[in-house]
Amino acid sequence: MSAREYLGEFEHMVLLAVLRLGDQAYGVTVRREIEARTRREVSIGAIYATLDRLEAKTLVQSRVGDPTPERGGRSKRFFRVTAPGVSAVKHTHRALRSLTEGLALLGVSS
C-alpha cells in the first residue's frame, strides 16, 4: 500500500462511522455518529465532501434509497465501505498503533 492510500484524520472517522452504521449509513446518521462519539461538531457539507472523495478513491460505494416525505420528497444516499476501504482502515490503524506504541505518556496500552 502506498503512502498516498493512508487515510486522513477525518476520512478515517467517516469510514469508521459508516462501518459502525452498516446498512443505515447516510449523511444524517454519519454526522450524528461522529458528533456523538467524538463530540466534534461537523457539517453535512464536510461529510459529503469526504464521502465523495472516498467514493472517488473506491473506498466507499453509494446507492440511492426511496424518497421520503420528512425529507421534502428527496431520497437518501446510503454508503457502504468497500473491501479496499476496510483495508485502508486496517493499514491506517496499524500505522497509528505502531506510532503510539510505547508512549506511556499518553496512557496508551498496546
Partner: peptide
C-alpha cells in the same frame, strides 16, 4: 444534481 438531492434531503430531515 446528485449531491443536491441527498444534501438537501439530509438538511430537511435534520431541520424537521
Amino acid at each position: 444534481r446528485e449531491q443536491a438531492e441527498s444534501i438537501l434531503g439530509d438538511l430537511s430531515e435534520e431541520f424537521s
